[in-house]
Amino acid sequence: MAKLNLNLKLKYKDDLFKFILSIFIFGIILIFITVVAIILYYSYPAVSRFGAAFLWTKEWNPPKEIFGAATFIAGTFMVTIIALMFAIPLSLGIGIFLEEYCPKFLKGFFTIIIEILAGIPSVIFGVWGVLTIVPWLRINIEPFFEAHFSNIPFLKVTENIGYGILAASIVVAFMVVPIIASITKDALAAVPKITKDGALAMGATRLDVIKDVSLPFSYRGIYGGIILGFGRAVGETIAVVLLIGNQAIIPKSIFGVGYTISALLANTFTFAVISPIYASSEVELALILLLISLIVNLIGRNVLQKVIGGKLSRTQFGGG
């Protein structure tokens, strides 16, 4: 009898344990639903009032209650794309260096450096940009481009102040490099060693192995990394606020100042809540960011799931 009681007690405890853990699972689902539902609920007035025209209206005029996101979407995509143009070759080089060329005894140390880069908070990147990148652009780069490339449309220097799309892009590029580089490294590490060794035994150089064996095997993983890097760059806020210049114009040159969605939200959201439609328009901008991040991450995870089996690299959790 006593034994039966003991068994029952254990079973109750086990059931209780499972029950409590499943409450936690509901907590996770609840958090996800909360963020999506709050953004949808509070952006609904703007969505229903402006419709799809919100996306291509250029004017953003709170006193007249005219709201259009085109300027900010353009700024966001310019910063993201220029940042990726810097980040992709750089991080492919880093991934290839760490996995294929780097001497064995330095590999761990070098990998830690790239992981540290991922952990540096974005506000510190912003400060570094303001005090290092901006003066460098203003003193060295912009006068050079003004003197030699002033007739090329995208490289025209309009105002020589250092702040602008390029400054923001460079810093954002350094923030996405660790993500793409570490995923590239993981994807290259997933190439079976025996195929690489086979190619080497046939007399191929390292470069041949990378070009003809490793990259064809792992290019999907690298795409996945680039997609995740894109998602990170689109939502980057604090460093961009400090560097982009915060002018609501569509920049005509990479040296021009501009505005991104996240920068606008960071600067004006707390003033916007006095007027319901103004606040709602800002939340609709957040909805655009949320949708981009969800779609991009969904695609990126699916790609990576197939290649490196959903293994998460540390750099994806990087600091704010």
Binding site: I28, F32, V35, I39, Y42, G231, G235, V283
Partner: peptide, 16 residues
């Protein structure tokens, strides 16, 4: 869901 939440920009979390 967790992986998607890691990707959500922090400014969106702030608004929520």
């Amino acid at each position: 869901l967790n992986e998607l939440m890691i990707g959500i920009p922090s400014v969106v979390w702030g608004i929520m």
